[in-house]
Structures are given as C-alpha cells and as structure tokens.
Design a protein around this nucleic acid. Structure first.
Length: 428
RNA sequence: GUGGGUGUAGCUCAGCUGGUUAGAGUACCAGGUUGUGGCCCUGGGGGUCAUCGGUUCGAAACCGAUCACCCACCCCA
C-alpha cells in the first residue's frame, strides 16, 4: 500500500521535539499572564463573512489565501487565517466590552492560509497573539509592545528591536494617500510592474518595494508621519515617550505598512535577521475601528500576532539552549520470567506516585534491557529476579556514575532512595 | 500564481565521462559464554535508486513529462 503523506505546507511535531514547543508555549503563557492577559479560546473556523469584513476584502489574505468551503448546511465557512477577527467577534458576541475595561486576552492557536510554502512560511502555522481592548492611550500600545519585547528576551532572542510607525486614522490617511499618489504619478515610468499594480491597489506598499529603482524613489516619497493629524501625532509622540520610559529599545521605520486593512495609528514589527526572507517574527498594531465594524460598540483595540514556527527558527539559529525532555527516574529490569508481574506492579505503583519509571515489554534479554535503559537515558536501574524477590531487596544502580545502593522492593523505599542515587533532586 | 535548485536505506550522504549481485556513516536488532548499560569488535534486517515514458545491447546515472521537497518573488507570522 502506498503511504499517504502530509498535506503541503503542514508539519508534524514529533515526540522527540514536542518538549521544545512546550518550553516555548510555557514562556509565552507565563509572560502574557505576568502582563495581566487571560487566555481566550475560539473555534478554528468561522463564517466567511467575518474575515471579509474584519480582515478586509481587498487584502491578499482574503482574496487568495483563505481555506473557504461550504458546509453540509450550505453555509460558507472559512478556516481562520488570523486570530484577531475571531477574538473581536467573541468580544462583541459575548458582550465582554460591558465588563470591566480594559480587556486583555491572549491566544495560542493554529491559523490557515493557502500559501506557497518556503522557509518560514506554511499553510498551517501557529500564532501567539494578544489583544488589548478599551484604552485609547499610547500607554496601552507600549504595554503590548513591551510584552512582546519581554517574551522575546525570555526566549533568548536578544538583538532584536521593534520597528514602529503610525499610519494614522482614516482622516489623515486620506491626505497622505493623496500626497503619495501625487508623488508617485511623477515617477510612473520608472516603477517596476508590480509597483504599477500597487499604485492602484495599495499605494502604501509602494514604499516597501525591494527593487533598487523603486527603493530609490521610495526614499524621497512623503512619509506618513508628516501627514498625521494632531491627535494621531500626539498619540505617536506619547508612544515614543512611553517606550522610552519602559526602556524598550525601538526604531522608527516609516516604510512599515501592514497587510491587514484594520490597522490605525500604531503599527509595529519585530524582524529577525537570521531566518531567511520571511523574517517578521511578531507584528501588530492598533485597530480602533474594528470592533464597531464588526457590529460592536466604539471600542479601541490593539494587539499583535507572533509565529511560533518562526520564533523556533530564530532560537535554533541563535543556538538557544532548551531544557531536554524528561528522562526516566528509574528503569526496572527483570532477570528471568518470574519477576514479570512483580515488575509490572512495581512499575505501576512508582508511576502512580509520580516517579517516571520504565521497563521493557518486548522480551529483551537482561543485557538488552540495560542497553535499552541507557538509550532511554534512565537515571537509575533496578534489576529484579528470583533472588531479589526472595530477599525483598534489589540493587539500585546509578546509570550516571555507576554508584549502587540496596533498596527494599517497595515503591516508597525506591522513591526515597532515587534522589540520592541520582545525585540530584527528582523532578516530580 | 512566477522563477531557481534538489529527489539513492528511518536519518545524513557516496555512487567518476551509462556496464553486470547499489554502497558508507548513523540508527535499529542479535552476538562477543552462564544475571547488567555507555567504548570496541562481529553479524543481521532494511532500498519499486520519487513516478511514468523515452534513448541504448545495457540507465540510479542521458532526455522528457509528472509529482514532492527546498529556496526566492509576491505577501505575511
């Protein structure tokens, strides 16, 4: 029979590597919790309409990357391509805006986009995201950026700095767009083909082109920051002051534009320099109109998304040390068939009491059991045969230094003697 | 969607300009005496040489198509 392989752009997390994910997720959860964010969970699919309205009908995500299908009841369903729309939907639907504000939530969830895979880009990837609702203050922006800065440092990702920008509110953005178009219309014949498309579709993206000629033109293009209305300007100044107060190192990058329609005012990105072309490791911003656009009240919000796969790539490239997986505290080897059931029972008791005990169930010889114990990384072994059963005692042997001690054949005595023989505190 | 690269054991890869039973390292299993791991030694299992078609007396090697993976563009996390 031919094997059935994994769908394009998806990945298994194998048993030998899942502890790395757990390590990462624990740090993310702890950091979110330290900053006062509670977890929110929501379904993997939503009504397609949510993303059309939430993410924006003209965005790449909506126009060519969604996993959309009709369910058996004739409803148009979409696998979530990002988390924010779902969170906002839940906030509106459950009336969370009526509770004590601000509302601070986080999630760790898979998201789905029909992409062509490459380094750092998958069809299913996992995002850690936070959303902060109910504050217009730049102090909230700084809190969110500060949280991102903190979890990156805790993961051992130093030397990464947030880039911030403001794309203004609908009022000042309209003016800026006009200025941008006016500037670029004078350079149309010098632009690359994709930029011609951008000029019509999404002029902000013109600033982002990597073509040498386009980049040169972008250099002298008008900057969003010069077109901000007084309110947006004050917000941006406030954010800079807050970040400075927190000691968060930032730089201003006027070419940051995000691909989702809902952003207003603050946008930011943390970009890695060692994982290839897809290098944004965390990106987000403020979305003051999204809640009302999804049928809720006027409720300001902001947040970010961060790709776990990319975080792991950066950590790997940096050689960040990650604690290994748990190793057996003791391996119970048996000599001769008499001990079979006794070993089963003892192993079970040890496990039930919180000791990681292991044994062989495949009929290995004693020697092979010892090799197996070594392969598993067991910290100690106990060999049980007819003699041991008769004496109700067995030798407990360290697999590290080879030290030996006599232990009574009881889960209590073995558990009590393991820390000594292992030369370290047991992890229970 | 566009472009480039690669496809030989579970994993990492050798296989020179086409030549007969396709290799190494590693991993796995078993032995190196009778109840003991790590090192070393010996042996063993495991491959439709991505798939299909073509050239040839002969193809893992050459040609074509397809598929998969990787990388880049686009866009994003």
């Amino acid at each position: 029979m031919a094997i059935i392989s994994i769908p394009k752009g998806t990945k298994d997390v194998l048993p030998s590597e899942s502890h790395v994910w757990q390590y990462l997720e624990n740090i993310l959860r702890k950091t979110a919790s330290d900053f006062g964010f509670s977890e929110i969970r929501f379904p993997s699919f939503e009504h397609t309409e949510l993303f059309l309205r939430g993410v924006g009908e003209t965005t790449d995500i909506v126009t060519k990357e969604m996993y959309t299908f009709e369910d058996r009841g004739g409803r148009s369903i979409t696998l979530r391509p990002e988390g924010t729309a779902s969170v906002v939907r839940s906030v509106v639907e459950n009336g969370l805006y009526a509770q004590t504000l601000p509302l601070k939530v986080y999630y760790i969830a898979p998201v789905f986009r029909y992409e062509k895979p490459q380094a750092g880009r998958l069809r299913e990837h996992h995002q850690f995201g936070v959303e902060y609702f109910g504050s217009k203050s730049p102090a909230a922006d700084a809190e969110v950026i500060g949280l991102a800065d903190t979890f990156l440092k805790r993961l051992g990702i130093k030397n990464i700095r947030v880039s911030i920008n403001s794309i203004g509110c609908p009022v000042c953005r309209k003016e800026y767009h006009a200025a941008l178009k006016a500037y670029y219309s004078g350079h149309m014949d010098e632009l690359c083909p994709t930029c011609h498309a951008r000029f019509e579709k999404n002029p902000l993206r013109l600033l982002d082109c990597k073509e040498e000629r386009c980049a040169g033109i972008a250099k002298n293009a008008p900057e969003t920051l010069d077109y901000l209305c007084p309110e947006c300007k004050a917000h941006f100044e406030g954010l800079k002051a807050e970040l400075t107060a927190l000691g968060v190192n930032y730089k201003i990058d006027t070419r940051i534009v995000r691909g989702l329609d809902y952003y207003t005012k603050t946008v930011f990105e943390f970009v890695a320099d060692n994982i290839g072309a897809q290098s944004t490791v965390c990106g987000g911003g403020r979305y003051d109109r999204l809640v009302s656009e999804l049928g809720g009240p006027e409720l300001p919000g902001l947040g970010f998304g961060s790709g776990l796969e990319r975080l792991l790539m950066v950590m790997d490239a940096l050689g960040v040390e990650i604690p290994g997986r748990r190793l057996p505290d003791v391996f119970l080897a048996m000599a001769g068939g008499e001990a079979e059931e006794y070993v089963s029972a003892l192993c079970f008791k040890l496990r039930a009491s919180g000791v990681y005990a292991e044994r062989d169930t495949t009929g290995r010889s004693l020697k092979a059991q010892m090799k197996y114990a070594d392969k598993l990384g067991a910290k100690a072994t106990l060999i049980i045969g007819a003699n041991e059963l008769a004496n109700n005692a067995a030798v407990l042997k360290s697999m590290r230094g080879g030290r030996e001690t006599l232990a009574e054949l009881s889960a209590e005595d073995i558990a009590a003697k393991l820390p000594g023989i292992n030369g370290e505190e047991m992890v229970l």
